[in-house]
Design a protein around this nucleic acid. Structure first.
Lengths: 224, 224
DNA sequence: CAAGAGAGTTACCGGTCAGTATCATACCAT
DNA sequence: ATGGTATGATACTGACCGGTAACTCTCTTG
C-alpha cells in the first residue's frame, strides 16, 4: 500500500541540520552529538515532528520516523512527551501561540484601524497560500485527520478556530459593519476555503483570489 | 494510542443491515447469508467502505474493519478490488459521478437561469453543512489525508475540483458578471470553506452563512 | 572527584497493517 | 447430475504501529 511509507531508510530528509559536521573531519568543538550549538533532544524532536506532521500528515508519520529525523531515538521522544497524541496536541498549541503572536503584532501596527488590520491579515494569508510547499492550515488538517471525539488535539483546534471567529467579529464591529457577525463568518469561510483549496488546486487555484474576495465582501457590507 | 481503534470487536456498527432477520426465527426466503434481497459482496464492501472512509477517515479505517462492516471477509474485498488505495479511488470516482448527476439535474431545472442554478447549488450545500453527521467534502478530506503525490485518488480529486471551478466560471459568465473568473473563485472559496469549517466549528459555525455570503458576492459583482 | 541528569543504544512487547494462500460451501445454468 | 462462479472461513506473511525496559555513555554541576 502506498499510504504507509515510514521505513527509516527512505524517510530521513535532512537530519544533518543540527550536526554541523565540517566536511568530514572532526572540528574540535563543533562536531558530534554533544555540541553546544545543537539544541536538546526535546527541541529537535518537536521541530522534526512539526515539520513532518504538517508536510506528510499526522497519521502518515510514525514516532520512529520523527525520532530518526530529529537524529535521536524513540526513547528520547517518550522521555519528553507522554504520547504521540500529546505531541500532536503540543504541536498545535505552539502553532496557536505563534499564530496569535503574529496576529497581535500585525494588529498593533495599525491601532484603531480595523480595516487595515483585516487587510494585513488577508495579505499574510495570501502570501501563505502562494507558497507551493504550504499545505493549508495545520489546525483544519488535523481536524480532518483526527476524527476521534476525545483526541487531546481537538480541544486545541476548536478553541483556536472559535477565537479566530470571535476576533473577526470584533474587528468587523469596529469597522462599523451593519451585520458584523455575518461579515465575520463570510471572511472566515474565505480564509478556510483558501487554505484547504491549496491542497487540491494548488497555488494557481482559487486561493490566490482570497484577498480580493475579502475586499469585495467588506465593501459590500460597508456600503450596505 | 487513541488514533488506531480498529479492533473488530468495537468497530462493527450495524452490519445486520442486509441480513433482514425476522425477529429471530428464520423466514424461508429472507434470512441468512444467501439471500436474494442481499446485495453481492462487492456492493456491500463498497457501501461499507464509503461510509467508514467518510465518517472516520481513510487512514483510520483498515480493510479488515471494512470487511467486517460489510459482513464479509478481507478475501472478498481483495477479490473485488485490487488494493485499498484503488478502493479509495473508486469511492471518490463514484462520489464524483453522483455529485455531477445531482448538479446537472438541479441545473436542468432552471434552464437558462444561471442565477437560480447557483442559488440552488448553494441551497443544497447549505443543507449539507447543516447536517451534524456530515464531515465536509470527501474529496477535500481525502486530499488532506493522502499526501503522497502519486496516490491513485489524487487524480480523481484534482479533476473533480478543476471541473467544479470550470463550471462555476461558466455559470458566472452566463450571469453576465464583469469578472466571471474572479467571482467563480470567490464562490469556490466559500464552498470549500463551508465544508471544512463544519469539522472544527460544527453546524452552528460560519458554514451556516454560506448561502448569504454567496448572495452578497454575486450581488456585489453584478452591481459593479 | 563524585553524583546526577540528559541522552544514546538495543532489544523487546502486543497489536494492527495490507495483502495472500488454501480449502470448503453454496448457488446457478446447463 | 455437473461444472462454473461467487462467496465464506481460516490461517498466514512481513512490515510497521505506539510504547517500554534496561543498560551505557558523557557532560555538567557541586
Amino acid at each position: 500500500m502506498i499510504l504507509t511509507g515510514n521505513s527509516l531508510v527512505n524517510q530521513r530528509l535532512n537530519m544533518t541540520k543540527y550536526l554541523s559536521k565540517t566536511n568530514g573531519q572532526p572540528h574540535p568543538r563543533s562536531l558530534g552529538k554533544r555540541n553546544a550549538n545543537r539544541p536538546n533532544a526535546r527541541k529537535r524532536i518537536f521541530d522534526a515532528a512539526s515539520e513532518l506532521f504538517y508536510l506528510k500528515g499526522i497519521r502518515a508519520v510514525g514516532v520512529e520516523t520523527i525520532a530518526a529525523e530529529a537524529d535521536t531515538t524513540k526513547m528520547s521522544l517518550y522521555r519528553n512527551f507522554p504520547s504521540k497524541d500529546e505531541l500532536v496536541a503540543e504541536w498545535l498549541r505552539e502553532h496557536d501561540a505563534n499564530f496569535w503572536q503574529t496576529w497581535d503584532a500585525m494588529s498593533s501596527r495599525h491601532p484603531k484601524d480595523p480595516r487595515r488590520q483585516i487587510k494585513a491579515a488577508f495579505a499574510l494569508l495570501a502570501k501563505h497560500v502562494a507558497d507551493p510547499k504550504a499545505r493549508g492550515c495545520p489546525m483544519a488538517n488535523a481536524a480532518v485527520e483526527l476524527t476521534e471525539k476525545h483526541h487531546p488535539a481537538r480541544k486545541v483546534i476548536e478553541a483556536h478556530k472559535a477565537k479566530l471567529r470571535a476576533r473577526l467579529v470584533q474587528i468587523c464591529t469596529q469597522m462599523g459593519a451593519r451585520e458584523p457577525r455575518l461579515l465575520a463568518d463570510e471572511l472566515f469561510l474565505l480564509m478556510e476555503g483558501a487554505q484547504v483549496t491549496t491542497q487540491t488546486l494548488g497555488v494557481r487555484g482559487p486561493a490566490r483570489n482570497v484577498a480580493r474576495a475579502a475586499k469585495m465582501l467588506i465593501d459590500a457590507h460597508l456600503l450596505l
